[in-house]
Design a protein around this nucleic acid. Structure first.
Length: 202
DNA sequence: CTCTGGATTGAC
DNA sequence: TCAATCCAGAGG
């Protein structure tokens, strides 16, 4: 594994490709108390023609338009940034922005395999054992101390950045429909590593 | 399965 | 202003 960061041009490929390629990459979070590392094992793509995407609004006639609001503004910005938002009353969700400025697409990180700083993550989550530590987007955000203060953060820079990992071969990538949404529920934009115990909803 | 939670959003 | 909705998590 390289110790360099993932370069921004990675995020100019198609968002589907980015979502697949991010499997195996590392999320590094530096805190005063220590360093946390998670290996990405599950992602979802959100595209600019996709009714489930925050940057897309579906009009009554069915037409889809882009709409930049205070919450989703980061999605319209440059690629390789963190898009973090708050939902369901308690949860932060961590996304990575893709595509050039003006095109609202992103990859939601749904699960990671904890590699470093597991004790600190357990402490942050109030758990004693790691099986359910990071197997969901809200869980991993809490474990890794990712909240709205990191919205718009450049993911080549501390205290939150991405590192390449060993690539997950195509035959080990499962493609399926996304979780927890109603609009665009049938689209096959969820990717996870086959048989990995850290994936959500196995 | 149900309950909780809080902000965003577009409609009114 | 207001209520529906929202890319969950925890507990039973």
């Amino acid at each position: 594994m390289s110790s360099s960061h993932l370069p921004p041009e990675v995020f100019l490929q198609s968002t589907i490709d980015v979502a697949r390629q991010l499997l195996g990459a590392r999320i590094v979070r530096e805190l005063p108390e220590g360093r946390l590392v998670g290996r990405i094992v599950e992602t979802e793509a959100y595209l600019s023609n996709d009714p489930a995407c925050h940057g897309v609004r579906e009009l009554p006639g069915g037409e889809r338009i882009h709409r930049c609001t205070r919450r989703n503004m980061t999605m319209f910005g440059p690629p390789g940034r963190a898009y973090v938002y708050f939902t369901y009353g308690n949860h932060y969700l961590f996304n990575i922005v893709t595509q050039p400025e003006g095109v609202p697409e992103a990859v939601l990180i749904r699960a990671v395999e904890p590699l470093e700083g597991i004790d600190l993550m357990l402490q942050r989550r109030g758990l004693c054992e790691p099986r359910l530590l990071t197997n969901g987007p809200g869980k991993l955000a809490r474990a890794m101390a990712i909240d709205c203060s990191l919205d718009g953060h450049d993911l080549t820079q501390p205290p939150l950045y991405l590192q390449p990992g060993e690539r997950v071969p195509d035959d080990q990538v499962v493609t399926t429909h996304r979780i927890g949404i109603t609009r665009g529920a049938d689209l096959p934009y969820r990717f996870y590593e086959r048989d990995n115990p850290w994936v959500s909803r196995r």
